[in-house]
Design a protein around this nucleic acid. Sequence first.
DNA 1: AATAGTCAATAACCATGAGTTATCAATTAG
DNA 2: CTAATTGATAACTCATGGTTATTGACTATT
Lengths: 294, 294
Amino acid sequence: MSYQLELRHFNYFLAVAKELHFRKAAEKLFISQPGLSRQIKQMEEILDTPLFVRDKKKVKLTPAGMYLKEEVEFILNHLELIQKQSRTIGEGHLGEVRIGFLGSAMQEVIPKFLLQLKESYSGIKTSLEELSNRAQVDALLKDKLDIGFVRLARVPKGIEIMPVKEDSFSVVLPENHALSAENFKKMGQLKEESFILFAQEYSPLYYDTVVSICEDSGFSPKVSHKSVHAQTIFKLVENNLGVSIVPTSLQYGFKMKIKFIELKQIPQRAVLSVIWKSDNRNPVLKNCMDLILG
Amino acid sequence: MSYQLELRHFNYFLAVAKELHFRKAAEKLFISQPGLSRQIKQMEEILDTPLFVRDKKKVKLTPAGMYLKEEVEFILNHLELIQKQSRTIGEGHLGEVRIGFLGSAMQEVIPKFLLQLKESYSGIKTSLEELSNRAQVDALLKDKLDIGFVRLARVPKGIEIMPVKEDSFSVVLPENHALSAENFKKMGQLKEESFILFAQEYSPLYYDTVVSICEDSGFSPKVSHKSVHAQTIFKLVENNLGVSIVPTSLQYGFKMKIKFIELKQIPQRAVLSVIWKSDNRNPVLKNCMDLILG
DNA sequence: AATAGTCAATAACCATGAGTTATCAATTAG
DNA sequence: CTAATTGATAACTCATGGTTATTGACTATT
């Protein structure tokens, strides 16, 4: 009997724990069923505790098995990351930071940050991914991301959050709309319009804020369309399908037949925040955070 | 060529990374040097990056190697914990919490907590260890401990802290000392005494607080002896080697020729706090914290 | 210089055990 | 009952982790 667990065991265990079926798990692992059975058995001997209950035709996890499944998922995931990072560092980089962001952060915050990063730490590689608020938080928790740029008020425990950019809101209107910067006085003038907004799931804070802007003017907005892309929203506005309210900085970078009226008088702000995990083990994260918060 | 890292590689790597000497590392691992060399080489191939520089007579870590050393230490450590926990859970317990504490917490807080724990979650095992403030924080950060009972004002990032017990301070005097509860009026009366205190390294907060108590009365204490055990401090007081100031609850549980005078009038309090890591993955920690924080 | 000593790498070999195929025993479905 | 499906056993094989013996590169000693 061998006396030491190996990663192989963990991989096999996880496959069975997920499938709850030895034969199917073995297939996915490209090994034979008896081989798998034996490895799992060995694992149970090493840990000195059963991990599965093989009860007439059914395979179930024991409590210890359930616990181990959680932990093994975490470990294998983390291990994958370590392998990538080692390689990256070996290539002469200081490391890689995995950045998630909302589309609206791409207008200004992200490019500025990447430029700074290049100047200060040319050895840091980045990988960029556009993700929803929710997806960024999830990815952060699962150690799939190091930094996120989100619009959120609250964030789960273990995640840190700091505002990086405050923006005003602007009304977005089709170019031929009767209202203009000159004759626009108050939100109430949009009472009868239908609104095209970022989806609530995509950014609850944004959605709630926009609704509150309208409610401050005594009406609740009729939302006719939702999207997760500014591009789409603007396109719909351009085609007279409604109006929108978005962070002002989104006005740059799109060439469409629409106009923006900045809402200078209202108290609401579109706040973009960085989020990161306080116990993130990525050694170059500190450098990045110094730059962003510095 | 194999195409998958195994824990064996990590163990071997760590040995070499620590020794920086293949032969010595091989000895410690109870394998032959060529075998070790080959495994490391294989590891470098899998990671596709060199981990060591074998430079004329000297073995050094590459940057990637340094990074990996940190991570591997963390992973192997965490893995060990997981194995223990699986076993514990397999035995029918819900899990095990590893508790560290200052001696002074043993008087009341710890027994009370253990009793509650037994009543509410009889399935939770505990391991107890008396440690200094500093040692508890270190152990917590290294994942060697789940909960600590400390006297600290501040705590590093990633660690949570909550006060659990407030205590007054008491002066400790030899039984035959001229001062007594009746004729003791103010701290100034102890101006000329020499003090026996808990060592500053052991509990900086305690030490600073005691000094502040004296300074509030216009003198700074002459400290003649320091210790990390109440037992020792009381013994010294008993033998007329000085007086002390300690959290009042320490008066129970020791049978010595000493007397306690509670300092009811001063503002300083001896605060005992729980500390734990916000990202601790121990599934029964939550139950414990619910009990402690109520 | 010459020699001895120390290091990790290489080469050739061996034996453990991961993974194979064939089969069994137990259960379920029709 | 029979057929199908499950995981466990048994017997075998072969890849590879680990072995010993040796080499090549370097250092320290005389």
